[in-house]
Each structure stands twice: as structure tokens, then as C-alpha cells.
């Protein structure tokens, strides 16, 4: 759906060159929800704004739905933009228009026939659950309702791509969840590709299929959300993941040892469960098969988009040979095993 090649953006601010994007390459598949996460100033906002050319890239090309958006002339670009919806952190609704007329706005711009447009607005208001608010002005709505209007407006011209620029960052956690759920529903219902940027890993965890981590103007990691959560590759990704899922535990546990007799080995391991395996009693069958003792140090289970995801830190005690076999058994069942300490 989106293909970004060698994208760079340089700003000139008070005589200084600022590199906002450094040779970014990215592909977003049709129908997926793709998240870009980064701290403020990392370049994520510039990146998403390049996709509908609110920012002109300095170098590189962007293709959206088969068309090189970076090569279009003014008129073609306007037409292309009508098929790329965008929602904003500050909602950006027109205070001079009612909810109904705000959703009508992009249809007016596209020159849609009046009656057809009015019918479409009704449909969209129903979709976002604001039919009863049609005659109200934005100032009379809550933040969540405003963003719903924003979403309805973004969908008015039947876009194939929705860009979300920190759309939930101004909302409380509960409202954020309901907006994210709406985005997920829209993604499924219309097979709409969604590209979102955020600084909140919870947003990624809740709705995204894949994620790119941007740090210091560069993309440092791209992968399926589950992959990145279970095995982050860079320090930046690590800290984002840890902000949401606690993977760390008190350091002294790494050094404390359980008392054991001579030929018994001990390993401290972290087991990550993804999807279906989270529902099977693998640990207890390992204990029985290999005659081990297990000391549970720490564990939690979470949900990434719709997939259960857990991790468990265990101290495993047993015969050295069997211990190794036991770990191989778990790996064979599709669990991610990380050995934290050998003794």
C-alpha cells in the first residue's frame, strides 16, 4: 500500500540544517495496521506528514497505492489526497460547522452530489455512533466524540489509507481504548490500511500488526508486533517494550541461588508464550517428563492486539542433561526461551 524509498527530509531553521528523516525505507501492506513509534523529535511526525505531502521530502520517493505521490502535480496531488484520510491529535474540526457539516466538508471539497453526500454523512455518523450529535458544534463534544467526528470525516471520501497522527495522545486511557477499538473495527470492516504514529507502546500493543521503531531520524527496527515485544532488537525498542510489559525483575534474583545437592544444575530462564501455546500446560508437562523442580520467580500474561502473550521467569532445577533436553522441548513447542543465568 505504501512504499517509502530512501526518504530524507532536511529542514532549515535559523540558518541551521536539521536532518528530520535519514534515509527511511518502509513498506506497509494493504489492509494492515502499521504503527510507527518514537519519542518526540524522533521524526515520526515528519514521516507521516510526508506520506500525504504535507511535508515535501528532500530526497527519496513515496508510492501510495501504486502511485508515486512525490511526482504528482498540484491537481493530481489534491485528488490523491482525497483518497488518503487523516486524523489528528488536536482533531482539527471546524468550529464554524456542526458535526454533520464537518463530516460533509471533505465531500464538498471533492464535489460530491448534495443528496448522495448527505446520505453518506448519515452512514458515517452511524458508524462512529454520533447520529444523535449531528446538529451539535465541536465545542459541545467531549474529546473522544471529537475524534469520532474526525474519523468519520477522514472516511468520507472512501479512502484506502488512513493516516493517524497521534490521534489518541490527547485522550484519557479509557477513551483511547474506545477510539482504538473503532479503528480496529474500521480496519476489519473496510479492509482499510491504517498507518499510525504514536509515542505510546500501548497503542501499538492494542491495535497494530506491525511496528517500526524510529529513533533519531532513522528506522531502527521493523517487525511484527509480537516479535518486537518478545524479542526487541535495539535499546530503544527495549525501553518501549519495557514501558508496557514488565520484563525486568529485581537484579539480586539473578545472583541468589537455591540450595541444591552436587549433581543438580540450575538455570534461570525466561519463557515467552505467544498465541495458542499460552493456553497449553507446557510447563507442567516439562516438569513431569524431565523430572525437574521449578521455582516460579515472576510471570505475567498480556494481550497483544488479539493474541495472548505471556512471559514467565523460572528457576529450573534438575539433572544437567535433562535440563538441556527440557529447554529444547519447550523451544520445540514454539516457546521463546532466554537463559538468564546458568549454575
Amino acid at each position: 500500500m505504501i512504499e517509502i524509498k530512501n526518504l530524507s527530509k532536511i529542514y532549515f531553521a535559523s540558518g541551521q540544517e536539521i536532518l528530520a528523516l535519514d534515509n527511511v525505507n518502509l513498506r506497509v501492506q494493504k489492509g494492515e495496521i502499521f504503527g510507527i513509534i518514537g519519542l518526540s523529535g524522533a521524526g515520526k511526525s515528519t514521516l507521516i506528514r510526508c506520506i500525504n505531502m504535507l511535508e515535501k521530502p528532500t530526497r527519496g520517493s513515496i508510492t501510495v497505492d501504486g502511485r508515486k505521490i512525490t511526482l504528482l502535480d498540484k491537481r493530481e496531488l489534491r485528488l490523491a489526497r482525497q483518497k488518503i484520510g487523516m486524523i489528528f491529535q488536536q482533531f482539527n474540526l471546524l468550529s464554524s460547522r456542526t458535526v454533520f457539516d464537518n463530516v460533509l466538508f471533505p465531500l464538498e471539497i471533492a464535489g460530491a452530489p448534495r443528496q448522495e453526500a448527505a446520505r453518506r454523512v448519515q452512514e458515517l455518523l452511524e458508524l462512529v455512533g454520533l447520529t444523535d450529535k449531528a446538529g451539535m458544534y465541536p465545542a459541545q463534544l467531549s474529546g473522544g466524540q471529537k475524534q469520532r467526528v474526525g474519523i468519520a470525516r477522514a472516511l468520507a471520501n472512501g479512502p484506502k489509507l488512513l493516516l493517524s497522527d497521534e490521534a489518541t495522545s490527547a485522550l484519557d486511557p479509557q477513551t483511547t481504548r474506545s477510539i482504538l477499538k473503532l479503528l480496529k473495527d474500521i480496519n476489519r470492516q473496510f479492509h482499510l490500511t491504517i498507518l499510525l504514529i504514536t509515542h505510546d507502546m500501548n497503542v501499538i500493543k492494542e491495535v497494530c500488526d506491525r511496528v517500526a521503531v524510529i529513533d533519531n531520524s532513522r528506522i531502527v527496527e521493523v517487525g511484527h508486533v509480537l516479535e518486537v515485544f518478545s524479542n526487541p532488537q535495539t535499546p530503544t525498542s527495549h525501553s518501549f517494550v519495557n514501558a508496557v510489559i514488565s520484563r525486568d525483575f529485581p537484579g539480586e534474583l539473578l545472583h541468589s541461588t537455591t540450595e541444591r545437592s552436587g549433581d543438580i544444575a540450575s538455570k534461570l530462564i525466561r519463557v515467552s508464550f505467544i498465541g495458542a501455546s499460552a493456553g497449553q500446560p507446557l510447563i507442567s508437562s516439562m516438569i513431569r517428563r524431565y523430572n525437574l523442580d521449578v521455582n516460579i520467580i515472576y510471570g505475567n500474561i498480556d494481550r497483544i492486539k488479539d493474541t495472548p502473550f505471556g512471559n514467565l521467569t523460572l528457576e529450573v532445577l534438575g539433572h544437567p542433561g535433562l535440563l538441556q533436553e527440557a529447554l529444547d522441548y519447550l523451544r520445540g513447542e514454539g516457546l521463546e526461551i532466554e537463559v538468564l543465568r546458568n549454575a
Binding site: 504535507l54 487523516m86 488536536q90 482539527n92 471546524l94 464538498e108 471539497i109
Partner: peptide
């Protein structure tokens, strides 16, 4: 607010609109 103008640009509005 600049954001309102940007929103309109993102919808494909021309200068007159």
C-alpha cells in the same frame, strides 16, 4: 489555527476552498 488549514489541505482542498 494552522491545524485547521492543514486538515483541509490533507483532504485535498484548493486555495479557494
Amino acid at each position: 489555527e494552522q491545524g485547521l488549514i492543514e486538515a483541509a489541505i490533507s483532504m485535498g482542498a484548493n486555495a479557494w476552498q
